[in-house]
Design a protein around this nucleic acid. Structure first.
Lengths: 344, 344
DNA sequence: GTGAAAGCGCTAACAT
DNA sequence: ATGTTAGCGCTTTCAC
């Protein structure tokens, strides 16, 4: 049996209350006794039993992240930074992932009912009205990342502005026939990115050819933001008798898929088709993919920071931030002179 | 305040013991009372408080995974499958990740002392003698994946055999000058992969040019299995006045880096240098990278299954499995006729 | 078959 | 400043 505060108390000749006070750095304790207790605890190799602490204090010091694992590596970068921030603040990360979007309700329910966590981090998932209200009612702090809900804290990207910037960049390079490969249009980011695209085209008086705008139909359980979807969309685009000279693609993994399809069709990027992706996943750099970078570190940092503050009641009111994506110019947009396509 | 078994008991006019029996499907209870309790519980929207359950039963139904996040996407695939298996078995996944290998002891210690988990899953990390013994002593089930220790359960890949197979494939294609880009030689997989490479070359009476064998020096906190390391290794290789005609690379991300370097040097793959990687991460498929596939799904399934069985005391004795990697022939090894290099 | 009672290891309120 | 006590919400004896 492991050593408990009772053992420490007995050895120190004090009550368990005093031990608890010493261990938790609480006031109303003599410095001497405190030090004595601390050294005895160390000597006995005492470590607190966090489950017992949780039950008594009603705090688990654990935060659950609900993540659609899909096939978008954007989440990996986010998660890494979230984990990093959480552990720095003394919190553990409980990971709930789903393979099919339909399962999200189940996980919301689970996180809520099991009470293994103090707060919930929801990545890139749409939270319906029902659960938004439920979260509010249970008073559990919830933070949405890469999504938005009027009732909940959120950190998202100014998707519309970013899409607009990407599109404008292509326009500035002289393209007149610009297409869009989007994710599943039911998703929040997909809609905003579409709007940004449309806005840029409209304001520059460029016609939008409906045949050049493709929304990846979400397969069962997916969201269209994956390599395969990008590949098929590009194939679909190229199967037509005319194709755009430039494309804004709503995610890097899709863009990678699109590049693969382009290559198979003998098209050179950016010569035949220029490309801008979205996210700036690790591989974008390696592939020379121009893209709109999401500030993953910052998003994670803000999310963790805010959630922890909220748990400490150090903040009130809705926290809704919109960050800007940044255009990262690499090869696929074609504005670097003398560049030879990564893909043949 | 949430509803507890006391509420259910009162409403049903029974003791809490009976409620517990009903809820947990235990014997010695009248079917009628049981059903009555169950329906009352449902009506009251009762959900068990897992923290209280844990404290009383000394079971958390949570498993911790200690993961070096590095930059190797191999872990992502593993984690996804692990999470999937665990949740199917009613377990939660606590994620401990480290950014620097040096931190692993800290996390071992943390997982052990906090007692938030029933078992520990260690991914791709070397467990020293000290902790192996400590794990045994505390009797906490531990499963190593992608590594090995005589005292602990493990699931690993027959690295030597796999490396040998990859090398032999290159030899069979007629290559005489074959090089190796390895991970940090201090790591277990790197050593075995080196041995397999050497074995194949020896047995086929091919000389090994020391200049063609590169071990990625692990940067602080890393393990050499990353894109950047692969890139530099290739640069280093190509800076010499002669270079191999084929390469076995110890991981796909490194191979991707190597391909990037090759392209920058104007070398065509597989024409000038043939390549075989290791892991079969998602991107390998997209890049046409030939590779030794690790059976990630199977590894995860076995690991979870075994760990859960162990927690239920349904198994004893050491469980040490070695699985075989499978050669996935794509374009970079050059054995598909008429293939034109993905990279220029 | 069921109820009462004793923990699980801690925190926190309340005495002293 | 310190000890005592009552929970936290459950599981698990142990009587009946």
């Amino acid at each position: 049996m492991a050593v408990t505060i009772y053992d420490v108390a007995k050895r120190a000749g004090v009550g368990i209350g005093t031990v608890s006070r010493a261990l938790n750095d609480r006031p109303n304790i003599n410095t001497e006794t405190k030090n004595r207790i601390l050294s005895i605890a160390k000597e006995l190799n005492y470590t607190p039993h966090s489950v017992a602490q949780s039950l008594a204090s009603r705090k688990t010091h654990t935060i659950a992240a609900i993540v659609p694992f899909f096939f978008n590596y954007f989440f990996v970068g986010l998660l890494r930074n979230i984990q990093y921030g959480l552990s720095a603040q003394g919190y553990s990360l409980l990971l709930y992932s789903l393979d099919r979007v339909e399962d999200k309700q189940l996980l919301f329910e689970k996180a809520l009912s099991e009470r293994k966590c103090d707060a919930i981090l929801v990545l890139s998932l749409q939270v319906g009205q029902e659960y938004a209200e439920k979260f509010r009612r249970t008073r559990i702090p919830v933070m949405l990342i890469d999504n938005h809900n009027p009732l909940l804290d959120s950190i998202s990207i100014a998707n519309e502005r970013a899409a607009e910037a990407a599109t404008r960049h292509l326009i500035k390079l002289g393209h007149k026939h610009i297409g869009l490969i989007n994710g599943d249009y039911h998703s929040f980011p997909a809609q905003s990115r579409m709007q940004g695209f449309v806005k840029a085209m409209r304001e520059e008086n460029l016609p939008i050819d409906p045949a050049f705008v493709i929304h990846c139909d979400a397969q069962i359980g997916e969201d269209g933001f994956n390599e395969q979807a990008g590949y098929s969309s590009m194939q679909q685009l190229l199967a037509q008798d005319k194709h755009p000279t430039a494309l804004f693609v709503a995610s890097d993994v899709q863009a990678l898929g699109a590049m693969r399809a382009a290559k198979e069709n003998g098209l050179k990027i950016p010569h035949d088709i220029a490309l801008i992706g979205f996210d700036d996943i690790d591989f974008a750099k390696y592939m020379g993919l121009s893209t709109m970078r999401q500030p993953v570190e910052l998003m994670a940092e803000l999310a963790v920071d805010r959630l922890v503050k909220r748990l400490q009641n150090k903040t009130k009111g809705l926290f809704q931030v919109e960050l800007n994506a940044e255009l990262i110019v690499r090869e696929t947009c074609g504005c670097k002179r003398g560049f030879q396509a990564q893909f043949e």
